[in-house]
Amino acid sequence: SGELYCSLPNPRNVHFESVNMKNVLHWSAPEGAGDGVLYKVKYSVYGVGKWIRKPECRNINRTWCDLSSETSDYEEQYYASVKAFLNGMCSDWMETTRFNPLTDTKIDPPMVSVSSTEKSISIILTAPEKWKRSPEGESISLLQVYPGLQYNVSVLNKKTKKRWFFSISNNTLVVPWLEPGTAYCVSAQIYVTTPLLHSGFSKEHCIATLKDK
């Protein structure tokens, strides 16, 4: 079909937003375009010759498109591109920079579960899973993706307001010899030294040691 008259301003800031390798393409509407702008999206695997259209993101009016499925192989790198349409006019294709899922994703904090006895607390950490196509799909922990993954654990004594830090590689930690009947708040962070990736700290999970019998 003849190419439309491409003088529409371009979509702006086309980029991937990725968390736990859920890779979503985002962009901003063309400057001054107003309502009614539609978009279509394509992507390509770096080093492979062709652009592939994303049918579910054809003629959409939203400014994002989930490309997690198309970019799930984190041993590859990708480009994505967006084109805008309005009243018979179109924009140029606007591309992302090269996207490397392994180094360009953000990692969620680990899940923290805490239990306590009279004088100790036990902490179990669970690293987030890599995005998967469906709940029935195979679960891949980010631990498998980043073998050097470690945890920083912060334990705050609510009475003394003193905070201790632990650095652990395995996902369990028991802190013995605590004060009975005292509240402790635990939060944890994931860090990978290379490639350098840090999650934020999880929200605090507070628990009290049992009272002295």
Binding site: W164, F165, F166, W177
Partner: peptide, 13 residues
């Protein structure tokens, strides 16, 4: 071995 320095690092009981 402490790789990342955080204010107070727990060693042992």
């Amino acid at each position: 071995v402490v790789k990342e320095v955080r204010s107070v690092v727990h060693l042992d009981t």
